[in-house]
């Protein structure tokens, strides 16, 4: 009896044999069936990655700022100007301190809520400006006045003690 090719492609060949062929030439060939299956696997992997983000977000929530942090002396920032500072925590977050008027201070996160560009206070406009896409925030409340930013800037509470400027978590404003 003549030797019969196990992968003869005949009508009686079960379909699983096409997926696991004996011949190396056929095994390395990526057909449309394999491509479609690969796409489905990739789709599953993307869903799992998205799940990992949710798990990370649930497991490691962002901690609120603890305690008061000394920034500078009151005399260091003139009225109408701003000072950029960082606070070391689980990660370094840049903030801006704005001296709006005499005895009126504000502190906001410097990252724009649109695409995290660094915002700056424009004294001539009396607005906080994001130079990347011309988003404007209120220097009083951090609310969006104009442009693409979807949310207000996160705000810190400023405390003045003996001519020294401290910031602490703004417990009322940053609650979602």
């Amino acid at each position: 009896m003549a030797h019969k090719d196990p992968y003869d492609g005949g009508e009686n060949t079960p379909s699983w044999k096409s997926d696991f062929p004996f011949q190396a030439k056929k095994a390395t060939h990526v057909g449309r069936r394999e491509f479609a299956k690969f796409l489905a696997l990739f789709s599953g992997a993307l869903a799992l990655t998205n799940g990992a983000i949710v798990i990370k977000s649930l497991t490691f929530p962002t901690k609120p700022l603890e305690g008061e942090h000394f920034i500078c002396n009151e005399s260091d920032v003139a009225v109408g100007s701003m000072l950029q500072f960082d606070i070391q925590g689980s990660k370094v977050i840049p903030y801006i301190l704005i001296h709006l008027k005499a005895n009126e201070w504000r502190a906001f996160e410097q990252k724009c809520t649109h695409l995290t560009c660094a915002v700056r206070f424009r004294e001539d406009l009396q607005k906080i400006e994001c130079p990347c896409h011309h988003g404007f925030f209120s220097p009083d409340t951090g609310e969006v006045l104009q442009g693409p930013p979807p949310r207000p800037l996160p705000q810190l509470e400023v405390v003045i003690k003996d001519g020294k400027v401290f910031v602490k978590e703004n417990e009322q404003k940053n609650k979602v």
């Binding site: 009508e11 479609a36 299956k37 489905a40 599953g44 869903a47 998205n50 983000i53």
Partner: peptide, 30 residues
């Protein structure tokens, strides 16, 4: 994150479900 995860999961399920309709490989006629 949660909304996109649920959406992504549904799309992945749809991707696997649609594989049911993959045509069988062509077989040579004897």
């Amino acid at each position: 994150a949660l909304t996109t995860f649920i959406g992504s999961l549904l799309l992945a399920a749809a991707s696997f479900w649609i594989l049911r309709y993959l045509p069988d490989p062509l077989k040579n006629k004897k």
